[in-house]
Amino acid sequence: MAAEPVFVPRAGQVDYTHIRYAPVLDAVVVCRGKVLLLQRSGGMRSYPNHWCGISGYLDDHRSVEDKARQEMLEEVGITADRILSMQRGTVLLQEAPDYGKSWLVVPILVRVDDRRYQLDWESQAADWFTMAEAMELPLLPGFDAVITQYRDVVDRG
């Protein structure tokens, strides 16, 4: 299992590696009554082997929606033309004392038109789950609060 590469910020990008409060997006991707969850690679510095949505730091000038599109392409190969809609949820503060972090999480519901995906190095597995199945997985701490914001949408299909 490969170790997570060292983060090197691009011009205009903030490095939140050693900053207590870090804004992130957490995309809940849904298609026909199921949610796409990724299992983080064992070599990740934080939360290895946990299941989660598609996430990323809000570390530059881009909007949440633009950042979600970027992360979707990078992490699962979903292009912008396959995204049917996006809807922001309620922002959450999630404390992570084991990592010395306080995550400012911006949930975003992303509806896609099909269930195709292709994983990058950040994840070792992925699959489509019903809400009930998702809640049985070893989820990233606090992700249950993110995903349950969209329980009705997923359950309706």
Rank of each mutant, 00 (worst) to 15 (best):
A2L: 14
A3G: 12
E4R: 02
P5F: 06
V6Q: 14
P9S: 08
P9F: 03
G12W: 08
Q13V: 15
D15R: 07
Y16F: 15
T17Y: 05
R20P: 04
Y21R: 14
Y21P: 04
A22R: 13
P23V: 07
L25P: 07
D26Q: 09
D26H: 05
A27V: 06
V29L: 05
C31T: 01
V35H: 05
V35P: 04
V35G: 12
L37C: 08
R40P: 03
G42F: 04
G43N: 07
M44D: 04
R45S: 14
S46V: 10
Y47A: 01
G53C: 02
D60G: 11
H61W: 13
S63Y: 02
M72N: 03
G77C: 12
T79G: 12
T79P: 02
A80V: 08
R82L: 00
M86E: 05
L92P: 04
L92I: 06
L92G: 01
L92S: 05
L92V: 08
E95H: 08
A96E: 15
P97T: 10
P97H: 09
D98Y: 08
G100D: 03
G100W: 10
W103K: 01
W103T: 05
W103G: 09
L104D: 06
L104P: 05
V105K: 01
L109M: 10
R111H: 09
V112P: 03
D113F: 10
D113S: 14
R115L: 07
R116D: 15
Y117I: 01
L119K: 05
D120A: 03
W121G: 00
Q124W: 02
W128I: 00
F129H: 13
T130G: 03
A132V: 07
L137V: 13
L140E: 07
L140S: 10
L140I: 06
G142V: 11
A145P: 04
T148K: 14
Q149G: 08
Q149D: 09
Q149R: 04
Y150L: 10
V154M: 12
